[in-house]
């Protein structure tokens, strides 16, 4: 059994602006099942952070419980991390973000962790538009506890043991849209060409960015009658659009004819450049997005790509007027402004 991945790397490996290779963004060797989609999601995140030249210590990973929630150990080994309790990642993320706005927060959750036990917390973190990237590695089962059906499993599909799923699936992107997320996307762990640009855009988006990643469980949900298997997902995904991520410092050289592509400019000046898919629609229209997801579901297709993005909407920090300075670097004078400030506050209530 190999517990170590060799530190040797390709002599011609590319370096980013910080002089790091993507290998510097890796974590420990995964103990998930061989072929688990979650590892591919981790690899896509590693690639995205590497390409964005994020300083590893400027990123915080947060998760709940589950194989997916365990996955942060296997990526971004030099970043901060907090493995919380089952379904409670949103509240810890909220607290962390309140205390320090300067980090990028990446939440890694599962369909059990989010759509079952964590549903309440999920709804509120979306509603509050916390500035974070929230990833659900969606495999239709509770992988860690040996494959019980999750709330995202499709009605009419079958468990590995052959039982039919009786309940309708919760569609997390639809919920996120309804609850006020300002960036919503869906992708597939087996398609990094699509996933990496979406992750990069989500990481640069200011506000709540939600990505539902279909991430097959090879052990408990990869059978022929599953709708979350590698084969099924690959055959049924339909990309609504193809998103390229263009960093702010890069000169835009490729030109597309009118109507062929659409740019969405993010806060930091970077762009999401969208090329229309087969039945492309406008990802700045929330109703159209909800509609399109449902239309595809009825047809038996899984709509992927950037489903919705509005970078102009305010996030939680805007609403609350929180300080840009991390609390741990505020000096005593600012934190305890003294009697006369208290007097001022008291006066305002008189």
């Amino acid at each position: 059994m190999s517990y170590l991945k060799s530190k040797f790397h390709h002599p011609k490996l590319a370096k980013n602006d910080l002089g790091l290779t993507y290998r510097d963004y890796e974590g420990a060797l995964s103990t998930l099942c061989a072929g688990c989609g979650h590892d591919a999601v981790g690899a896509a995140l590693v690639q995205a952070c590497f390409e964005l030249s994020l300083e590893p210590h400027k990123v915080a990973k947060l998760s709940g419980i589950g194989c997916s929630s365990k996955a942060p150990t296997y990526f971004l080994g030099k970043s901060h991390g907090f493995n919380t309790v089952h379904g409670r990642m949103p509240s810890v993320a909220t607290g962390a973000s309140m205390a320090n706005r300067s980090l990028k927060y990446v939440g890694m959750s599962g369909d059990g962790d989010t759509a079952s036990i964590g549903m309440g917390q999920f709804a509120h973190v979306v509603r509050r538009r916390l500035d974070m990237t929230y990833i659900v590695a969606n495999n239709g089962v509770y992988g860690l506890t040996k494959g019980q059906t999750a709330a995202t499993a499709d009605k009419g599909s079958h468990t590995k043991k052959g039982e039919e799923i009786l309940w309708s699936a919760i569609d997390l992107p639809t919920m996120a849209l309804q609850l006020g997320a300002t960036f919503v996307a869906r992708s597939f762990s087996g398609d990094k060409d699509q996933l990496v640009p979406l992750l990069k855009a989500a990481l640069c988006h200011e506000g709540f960015a939600f990505i539902d990643v279909l991430s097959p469980c090879v052990t408990f949900n990869n059978h022929a009658t599953s709708t979350r298997s590698y084969d099924y997902v690959r055959e049924h995904v339909e990309a609504g659009n193809i998103a390229d991520f263009v960093p702010s410092r890069e000169e835009i050289t490729t030109k597309y004819a009118e109507g062929e592509s659409k740019d969405i400019c993010l806060h930091d000046g970077s762009l999401i450049r969208l090329h229309k898919g087969k039945d492309g629609y406008d990802p700045t229209d929330r109703f159209a997005a909800i509609n399109a997801i449902e239309q595809h579901r009825i047809k038996g297709e899984i709509l992927t790509g950037l489903l919705y993005c509005d970078p102009t909407l305010r996030d939680m920090h805007d609403f609350l007027g929180t300080t840009e300075t991390p609390l741990n670097t505020l000096d005593e004078k600012t934190l305890c402004p003294g009697n006369h400030a208290l007097a001022g506050i008291n006066n305002s209530f008189r």
Binding site: K7, G35, G190
Partner: peptide, 14 residues
């Protein structure tokens, strides 16, 4: 091969 790309990700030498 089911194209899970696990091998592509794990390979230390790309």
């Amino acid at each position: 091969c089911i194209e899970c790309v696990a091998c592509e990700d794990i390979c230390p030498m790309d």
